[in-house]
Amino acid sequence: MNRPAGRLDRTDARVAWLLMAPAFLVMIVVAIVPIGMTAWEALHVHDLRLPWLGRPFSGLDNFVEAAQDARFRGAVVHTLGFAIVSVAFELVLGVAFALLMHSVTRGRGPIRAMVLLPWAVPTVVAALVWRFLFESQGGLVSTTLRDAGVVAASFDWFVHPWAAWVPIVVADIWKTTPFVALLLLAGLQAIDPSLDEAARVDGAGAARRLFTITLPLLAPAVVVAAAFRMLDALRIFDLAYVLTGGGPGTATEPLSLYAFATVMQRLRFGYGAALSISVFLLTFAFALVWVRALGRSLVEKEPA
C-alpha cells in the first residue's frame, strides 16, 4: 500500500466520522447549544422579577446598555488587568521553577508532587485560607507587615481599592504557578540536551546558554502555557467572589462576578446573558488573536 500518510479512502472516512459522531454530539449538547441559547437570551428583555414586561426581543439593546454601563466597563478593565498581571508573574515564576526542577537530579518525584500541591487545592478553599492570611485582625500577612512597620496598624487590605487586588493576585499566582511550571518542565525535557552540551564545549556560559538556547527553544511551551492560563484567568470568578466579593465598591469585580450578580441576585436574565456572552467573546477573541499572532509564528519558525 503506497497511500500517502494522512489520507483516507471513502470507507475509512465514513467510519472516522461515525466514530467521532458521539464526541461531536456531546460537544453540541454541552457546549454549542447552551452558548447558542445564552446568545439568544441576550437578545431579549427578560427579568424574572418583572413578568409584566414579558420577554420581548430587543435586538442588541442589552449590549448597547453594557457599553454605556460604567460598572461593566470597569469589570472589563479589571478582568484584563488581572489576567495580564497574574499570568505574567506565573510565567516568570513558572520558568524559574521548571528550570529548578529540571536541574534537580535526586528526588524528582517528591519535589514535583510538592510543587503541584497548591494546584490540587480547590480554589474556594485556597481563597478562604488566603482571606484568613490577609485579614486585618490576626491575619498572618497583615500582622507580619504591621510588626515590620511596613503598614499602619489600621491598614486593611480589603478596604483599599488597589490593595484589595494583592490577595487575589497572590492567591492566583500561588495556585497556578505549579501548573505552568509542570507544562514548561515537559517543554524543557523535550529540548535535545546535546545542544546545550555543544554550546558548553564551545565555551558558552550558563547565562548565554539559557538565553540563546534554552529559552528560545522553550518559547512554544511558554506560548501554550500562557494561552491556557490567560483563557482561565479571563474567566476569574471564585477568587474574587470569596476574597473580596468584588469590593471595596466594585474595585475588584471581574466580568464573571458581575454577570453572576446580574443573573442570580438581580434576576435580569437577558442582561446577564449579554454579560456572559461578553465574557465568552473576550476569551474567544483573545484565543483567536493569540493563536494567529504568536502561536503560528512560533510554530512555523520551530522546524527551521
Binding site: 486585618s136 489600621s154 491598614f155 486593611d156 480589603f158 478596604v159 469590593g247 471595596p248
Partner: peptide
C-alpha cells in the same frame, strides 16, 4: 471612631 475594617 469606627475602624476601617468595619467595611469588611
Amino acid at each position: 471612631f469606627v475602624p476601617p475594617s468595619a467595611l469588611t
